[in-house]
Amino acid sequence: MKNTLVFVAATLLLSGAYAQSRSQEAAPQFRSRPQLVAESLKSAKPRGIVQLNDGSTAAGAGSGVMKFGQAALKGQQFADAREARPHQLALQGGTPQ
């Protein structure tokens, strides 16, 4: 009985040490196929900054130029039309009757 208990304890101890030593974090794989593919794709990218021919930054970013779409312009027209109509400001103190 005592021998069995010692054998089980030794087995658990060794299996725990084996499981910890075989983890990816403890022994990372260097130069695996996905890593080689990613490195080749990274090295295939062109180096440097691409010059724009029109003299502006991409999509007006950082230049203070804002480009509004058709939906934004139409929404602003509707908002201006709403504000132009006469209306009474809401009064505090409950629901008007």
Rank of each mutant, 00 (worst) to 15 (best):
M1C: 02
K2N: 10
N3R: 13
N3C: 02
L5W: 06
L5G: 04
V6K: 13
F7E: 15
F7S: 13
A9N: 07
A10D: 02
T11K: 03
T11D: 00
L12S: 08
L13E: 01
L14G: 06
S15Q: 03
G16C: 10
G16A: 10
A17I: 10
Y18D: 02
A19D: 08
A19F: 08
A19P: 01
Q20A: 14
S21G: 00
R22A: 11
S23V: 07
Q24L: 09
E25N: 11
A26H: 07
A27W: 01
A27G: 00
A27V: 11
P28A: 00
P28E: 00
P28T: 01
Q29K: 10
Q29C: 01
F30Y: 03
R31P: 00
S32Q: 00
S32N: 05
S32G: 12
R33F: 07
R33D: 10
P34T: 07
P34M: 05
Q35C: 00
L36S: 02
V37R: 13
A38L: 08
A38F: 02
A38W: 01
E39N: 13
E39Y: 00
E39I: 06
S40Q: 15
L41G: 04
L41P: 00
K42W: 08
K42E: 15
A44D: 15
K45V: 09
G48S: 06
I49T: 11
I49P: 02
V50H: 01
V50N: 04
V50D: 01
Q51F: 12
L52S: 03
L52K: 04
N53F: 11
N53M: 10
N53E: 11
D54H: 14
G55D: 04
G55M: 09
G55Y: 04
S56Y: 08
S56Q: 12
T57I: 02
A58Q: 05
A59Q: 15
A59K: 14
G60R: 03
A61E: 12
A61D: 10
G62P: 06
G62R: 03
G62N: 04
S63C: 04
G64W: 01
V65C: 01
V65D: 07
M66V: 14
M66K: 15
M66F: 07
K67C: 00
K67T: 10
F68E: 04
F68Q: 07
F68L: 12
G69P: 01
G69E: 06
Q70P: 10
A71E: 15
A71L: 12
A71V: 13
A72E: 15
A72I: 06
K74Y: 07
G75R: 11
Q77E: 15
Q77T: 12
F78D: 15
F78W: 06
A79Q: 15
D80C: 05
A81V: 11
A81L: 06
A81Y: 08
A81T: 10
R82S: 11
E83N: 12
A84I: 06
R85Y: 04
R85E: 14
L89V: 10
A90L: 12
L91M: 14
L91V: 13
Q92F: 09
Q92E: 14
Q92T: 12
Q92N: 09
G93Q: 04
G94D: 08
G94M: 02
G94A: 03
T95C: 12
P96E: 07
P96Q: 04
P96F: 08
Q97I: 07
Q97K: 11
Q97L: 13
